[in-house]
Structure formats: structure tokens, C-alpha cells
Amino acid sequence: MKYSSIMFSLLTAIRYLVFMTIYHYLSFFNHYSKIYMYYFLLFLMVELDVRDSKIFDVICDNARVPFTDIAKATKISKDSVKSRIDSLVKKNFILSFTPVIDYNKIGYKMFHAFIKLNTSLDQEELFLKNAISNGNVVAVTKVIGGCDYELQVLARDVIDEYRILDKLFTSFKKGITDLRVLTIINYYKYTMNIKKSSKRSFSKNVIKNKPFKVDSKDLAILKELFDNCRESLVSISEKVDLSPELVRYRIKSLINSGVIKSFHARINKNFLGLTTYLFLLDIEGEINNKDLQFFNSTSNIYHSRNTLGNWNLNIGFCAGNNNELFDTIYKIRKNFGDRLNRFDLLVPLHRYKFSPIPDGLIL
């Protein structure tokens, strides 16, 4: 057992050295080619065995489950569970342990702005810098398809959202050829387990939910949970200057009030040889039980959301090759049939920013 562990460590070290050597000589590639090559090389480095897969199946949609419970569910020792999770984090297979929150509960709405640019690279870099530094922007993602960037923006209402985007785009209005904004209404499905059909779904209307009063301590706890929702109560308590008992009580209140919807382990899907796609649809009529069953039974669909704007349905899914891509698109189109008016397909390339509790969020 000890010998095999040493051999595994040596093999990992050799792969890492090979990876760093090759990546060091990629300076002649352009920026986006380096991104693709980076993920490809890391994919070669990560191997998931049966035990890793069992652990991930437990924590993917329940990221705060204790090590002891993971050990019982997987029949793996507690020390081995902890060691393997630490290894997956170190290798960047697991990007973070994070909660999913309903921003409407704290008086905010999430807007998704899809932007098409026609400007120089210097101007695009300046646009990107401004978007990343903006205190109301949660995420900035480079995409290909019908637009160039997706921005996730937190705002109090539509007027506030217009003010934020107008200020952000003031210097780039001539370079923006298309801007489409979506508001999230319903969450139908959200899961990180892309290997199995999901039983987890959200059908509550987030627009009509009454806000939950949070204070600066709640916000500080949420920030710590977004940094690592597996962090211990003792560790969080030291950072937010509250007792562990009060931290536990506040987290429980945030869960019971619906502010925190769930806890997930965010994974780098590239390591599984998967590409992420965003399917934007305009459909007629309401989402019915048959549609919900389709979302939950289609394992490579990891989120589905009802939106208000140019498209009223937003589906995120993964595919390992073109056949899986075409098959998934076919299944989605077949499910909605004549109800589907039009659709667009986007491919996220690189996320430049992910800050779920941005500096501009004011209670």
C-alpha cells in the first residue's frame, strides 16, 4: 500500500514537471490558444479513480457534508477522504466549495448582459479591465457565438441595472454593436453532478420572494462561505468575530430563509474532457411538468433557468464531443417541438472574474 502510494506521488510529480516544461514554452501562442492548451495539459495530469468519483458524487451537491459522513457513504477512511479532497483541490479539479444564493432574498436581482464588441484589442482589454473592477459585476466570461462577453451584474432593479451598465459602457458605446440583458426569474435545475440524473430542482419564483433582512455579519459569513463553504464554524467565527454557535445559527437562518439554496463543489469540467455550452431559447407557453422531468433526467444538463428578456429559457449543459453536442441539442429541440421559436448557442471560453459577493453590494 505504501509502495503504491509512493509510485502514485512520483508519477504525479513527473506529470507536473512535464506540464510546467511544456506550458513554459507556449509564449508563441496567442492568449486564447494558451487557455485551451493549459486546460488540455491539466486534463492529462488529473486522473480520477473510483474512490475519487465516489467522494465527488457525495460532495458535488452537498459540499458542507462532514468528512465522517463522506467516509460512511463511500466506505473510505476519513483520513483518505480528506487527503483525496485536498488533492483534487490542489490539482484544480475542484475549483471551489461554494453556496448557491437567491440574491433577490437580500434585495438584489441578477442580470446577465450579453455583449458583442467591434473594437480594437487595446479597447477590448480596457473594457475587460473596467468590467472586472466594477463593484456590481459578479462574473465576467469570454464566450464565442452570438456575442463576445457575458457579464453577471447585481442591481436593485431595472433602473439600477441600466445605471450600472451605462456607467460601465460610457467609453465603449461606439464599440458595442449588440447588448442583450436577461433577468433570472425561476431556477428549474442546478447541479454539479453531470454524471447522474438530478433530483434537485428549484421551482420557486425568485422575483416574488420577500427579501430577508441580512446585516453586515451575515454578509461577512456569506463571503467566507463563498471562499470555502467547507470551512469549519470555528475558523469562520474567528474571521467574522462571532462565536461558533452564533455562526451556526446565522447559517441555519440563511438556509431556512432561502437566501442559501444549496452548497456545491464547483469542478473544472475540462478535466473530464467536457466542454460547457450555454443554450438560450425563446419558447412559447409555460414550463410544464414534462419539461421539468426532461431537465432533471438529462444528466449533462447542469442548470436550467427561466429568464426575462430576448430569451426566456437558459440551459447550461456539457458535452464531450460533437456527437454529444448535436445529440443534446436534438433532445432539447425535440422536447419543446413547435413551442421553440428560436435559439442561440454560446461557448464559454474563459472566466476572468467570479466574485459572488462583490464590493458594490450594499445592504
Rank of each mutant, 00 (worst) to 15 (best):
K195R: 12
L95Q: 14
I207V: 10
E124H: 06
D241P: 02
G175H: 04
F67V: 13
L340Y: 07
Y187H: 12
F317L: 03
F263A: 10
F8R: 12
T183M: 02
I55F: 00
Y302R: 12
V137Q: 00
S53R: 13
K269M: 07
L168F: 06
A319Q: 03
F336L: 11
F343R: 01
L278T: 15
E150M: 13
L272K: 05
H264K: 07
E286L: 12
D218P: 02
D49T: 05
G273K: 00
S216A: 06
E125N: 14
R156T: 07
G175C: 04
N92V: 06
S203V: 13
L349K: 11
F19V: 15
F212K: 00
F271V: 13
R266Q: 10
K174M: 08
L233K: 08
I132H: 02
P244M: 07
Y36E: 14
E124T: 10
A155R: 02
I85L: 12
V58Y: 07
S235L: 09
L233G: 05
T98V: 14
T191D: 04
Y103K: 11
K129V: 04
K90S: 10
S257N: 06
K54W: 03
I106H: 05
R84A: 02
N268F: 00
S77R: 09
S198N: 00
V58I: 13
A265H: 03
G316V: 05
K331W: 03
E124N: 09
F354T: 09
I267Y: 00
Y25F: 15
I144W: 04
K204N: 11
I176T: 05
G360A: 09
K204V: 13
K204P: 01
I362L: 10
D166S: 15
K173G: 07
I315G: 13
Y103W: 08
I164Y: 02
K174Y: 07
I35L: 05
L281R: 08
I260G: 12
E150W: 01
G337N: 08
R15N: 15
I159H: 03
L361Q: 08
V214Y: 00
K129I: 06
R339T: 03
F354K: 09
F172T: 10
H350T: 02
D102S: 10
D79G: 14
V153D: 02
K239C: 09
F127E: 10
D69V: 08
A71G: 14
L151A: 07
E284I: 07
R342K: 14
V240Y: 04
I55Q: 03
V234M: 02
L126T: 11
V140W: 06
R339Y: 02
V158R: 15
P244E: 07
E150L: 10
K167N: 15
I260P: 13
Q293M: 05
Y187E: 11
K208D: 09
G285A: 11
T68E: 15
I260F: 09
E286N: 13
F317N: 04
F97L: 11
P99F: 01
A131K: 00
F67H: 06
N193Q: 07
D52Y: 05
D291K: 04
F317E: 04
R342A: 10
S171M: 01
T177L: 06
I76C: 06
N209S: 03
C60S: 12
N186R: 12
I184C: 11
F56A: 14
Y3H: 10
G285K: 04
I164G: 05
S232Y: 05
I176L: 00
G135F: 01
G360W: 00
